[in-house]
Nucleic acid binder design. Structure first.
Lengths: 374, 374
DNA sequence: TTGTAAGCGTTATCAA
DNA sequence: TTGATAACGCTTACAA
């Protein structure tokens, strides 16, 4: 048996088993105070019990002496102990955290979804880690990487309009981390989704315009790769078809949700030789741009131009005589997505096929679409 | 030397040193595959190097053979290795994460602040963990606890209007975790703050009303404990004083930022025997309630009632003839708060006295406050 | 240039 | 009922 010193500790070598080891030194730890968060071990040492006993007390494990428990809990309060979630997550390989990636924060839609999701998750003792991509694919990838590195247990996603490659999402599924897409989803990706009934909402909006006497109805749409855009377009088309209106390709333009594009394409529509007498916009910001344009051009709303938006942004009720729009169940989308992912984490839908939850949308009629004499 | 088996592993006892130990078994780990994220050790084993070598390669440490490094980086990609931030944070006692607690998400103000903060933090390779209290003290406490458990390196806070007890924030400072308060701060708490110049903004707003011929100017204020409310009130008072207007206590009412209270108090003001001819509201939502009330009562804006808000919410430009309001530098507040906290983490202001950063606010004049003939 | 092993703060499995 | 210790995945001081 040889012996030596390593970092101030005596080190031994067992010849028979060719193994080095040092003697544990119980004094050592207690020196290591100052600028350090109190741990389970600090409590244990102060009380002369073992750390496992402390751990049991803090999680009221059945096998523990009530007196011991009380002493430990008191000491924990005295030392202002706060559990270290990092260590906990590391050993459990579970962080109790769900990540959410949204394209933006600046309309009311996503904040509302987040509020709904947070409510459900907090109840189940999960945290929500919120990331915002600013409609940038690059940032979205960086966000998902960060969430992966932080080992979130699940992911809620609404994609940026730039996103055309989905590898960064698929790498969650590869690791068996459940993913639920909401609102901005794409077709084909065989996964769990929560969406509003965009088709029915759009259909109702356009039907309403038709029944109010508008004849030449245009559609300012969203990015064509998103299901949301496809469904709203389909609703528009089906409504026209039902009432025998022609589908005129020149009256459909795809934007990208930005005000800038809305302005350019809206201008284009209003400047046509034969301009539309109504516009169904893919969302409220787009519709609001159209209203502003009309005002600037002296086009009267709703007599000369009917306008309908989508989302029921709080602005909608205040603008002009009110903007007719399709109201989406925002918080409910968040709640549904959260519930779905909690179910997946419990392994409920383990070998079920991907689920799509569709929540109904509702037309809210205001001043921008009611011709005085239909 | 005794020997025995523990959990399938041979266990030895060294009599001389009274120490138990087991022989490390290098084979064992490689069996443990399936549903597990690839780790540094998986890479090490595949390549027959040690985990420290892998760690060095991944952080391009200088002392490493370029060939070894290349092999390791290639293998990391092949195995789709993603670092485990939890383990990393645990050993470094640093999470590279800043927490932010905001009272709400549903006006544009806080989302904008968050966007600004996130931009600065991401550049410094920090993550932002966003929490929202919904103006509830309880939730705010729960949020800060969660952030503490997650060992954020710093905290950005804007308080809920319910908050009157600050222990949950102080427990960060007790642990030497820097805290920066922004926007909704309280006086006295001797800490770092970032605020807009509420005083100057309010002064400019009320001065503008006076110069436009309004004589009896009321103020619908915010919760009196918040500095933001105090400063806006002070600006209101100083402007009146400067122009020799009397300070009438009956024309000042403190609300709590909710639309409900705004409605009740607005109603009260307009129903007075001698009602005000102008109202300076503590924020835009309050001002918008007043405008709606006036409309319902048939009071003409701005002839019979001048209205000024605060925040320049995007709604403000669209509502009626436009709402005059004080524009705050939202993203800049976020950026400034983030920069300040990064500085604190670098230990720059270590023994400097708490810093208060004041960013200028700007009056934006619109239709709600310009009398035709002053 | 590479390997060994301690340590970060927990939980959990055995032994006692 | 309690204690000892391995394990979670990583960094790093020191040894080789």
């Amino acid at each position: 048996m040889k012996a030596g010193f390593v970092r101030g500790k005596q080190r031994f070598f067992c010849k028979d088993c060719t193994y080095y080891f040092t003697l544990p030194n119980p004094k050592e730890r207690s020196e290591r105070r100052g600028r350090h968060q109190t741990t389970i071990i600090d409590i244990a040492q102060d009380l002369g019990v073992s750390n496992s006993t402390v751990s049991r007390a803090l999680h009221n494990h059945p096998d523990i002496n009530p007196n011991t428990r009380k002493a430990i809990l008191d000491k924990a309060i005295e030392l202002d102990y706060q559990p270290n979630q990092l260590a906990h997550s590391l050993v459990k390989s579970r962080t109790n955290t769900i990540g959410i990636v949204v394209p933006e924060f600046l309309t009311q839609f996503f904040p509302n979804v987040i509020v709904g999701a947070q409510r459900v998750l907090r109840q189940a003792d999960y945290n929500l880690m919120i990331m915002q991509s600013g409609e940038s694919y690059e940032t979205e990838v960086a966000n998902t990487k960060a969430l992966l590195a932080n080992r979130v247990d699940g992911l809620l996603v609404s994609m940026s309009h730039e996103t055309n490659n989905y590898d960064h999402f698929l790498s969650f599924e590869k690791r068996d981390i459940p993913v639920v897409y909401f609102n901005r989803v794409i077709e084909g990706l065989g996964t769990h989704k929560v969406v509003a009934n965009d088709y029915r909402g759009a259909f109702a909006a356009v039907e309403h315009l038709i029944l109010n006497g508008y004849r030449r109805i245009a559609h300012l749409g969203g990015p064509p790769n998103l299901l949301i855009s496809q469904e709203r377009l389909r609703g528009y088309q089906e409504a026209l078809r039902k009432y025998g209106h022609p589908l005129l390709p020149e009256l459909v333009i795809h934007g990208d949700f930005t005000a800038q594009k809305a302005l350019i394409y809206g201008q284009h529509l209003l400047d046509m030789a034969q301009p539309p007498d109504a516009i169904f916009a893919v969302n409220d910001p787009t519709a609001i741009e159209v209203l502003a344009l009309a005002k600037a051009k002296g086009i009267r709303i709703p007599e000369e131009l009917g306008v309908v938006g989508f989302s029921d942004d709080p602005i909608a009720v205040h603008i002009g005589k009110g903007l007719t729009t399709v109201k989406q169940p925002t918080t409910q989308i968040g709640e549904a997505a959260a519930k779905l992912i909690l179910g997946l984490l419990r392994g409920e839908q383990a070998n079920l096929s991907p689920q799509t939850i569709v929540l109904e949308a509702e037309l809210v009629v205001r001043g921008s679409s009611i011709k005085a004499a239909g």
